[in-house]
Amino acid sequence: MDVIIDNLPAYVDGFLRTLFLSVVSGIFALIFGTLLAAARVSPIAALRGFSMTYVEIVRNTPLTIAFFFAAVVLPRLGVTFQQFEVAAIIALSAYTSAFIAEAVRSGVNSVPVGQAEAARSIGMKFSQVLTLIILPQALRTVIPPMINILIALVKNSSVAGAFYVLELFGYGRQLANANGDAVLWVLVGVAFFYLLITVPLGYLANLVERKVAIAR
């Protein structure tokens, strides 16, 4: 127990870094994922094909492979990063955006056909139908699964700790090495800080889901 209190500054720093990694990657993933979903339903075949291929490949790639590629293979090919955080953010947002895209797409599919038909029949263009009618409704229904993806993102960011990025899990490894006699408490501390993010987010997802369910 003492080991947690003694190293509290390291834990808090790691916690903030994990939060930073997750928030930045989350924002990029949300933007890129929504664009991918829009491409998936667009009238242009090449965009549809690209979005589909990207999502299929990324969804079936283990995150560790993505990190290994960014942190070990790319430097060998001459692409070096000043900070490994950049590689981690690229890997995490590229990975998460595929899941966001799938969630948004299933949200688009959940909007009743009549909505799009009505919008079409009053003369809206594709871009108007999508931005004014479909996406606002779709995004509403996908908020709970989206939060779950973001929870997964927070947990996935721990993989970065194994690839030279110092965040919560990275600090945990260091502290575990330094305090061989108190490994149990070191890792319990790490777990506590992860749960500090993931459990409230999980409750938020449940809450929003219940709200949306009533509204529909």
Partner: peptide, 19 residues
């Protein structure tokens, strides 16, 4: 269940490995 779902898998592996 809440606890298990909220934790990174790699942390659990690491926990079992060391503890």
């Amino acid at each position: 269940l809440e606890f298990l779902r909220g934790m990174p898998v790699v942390l659990m592996m690491f926990f079992v490995l060391l503890v």
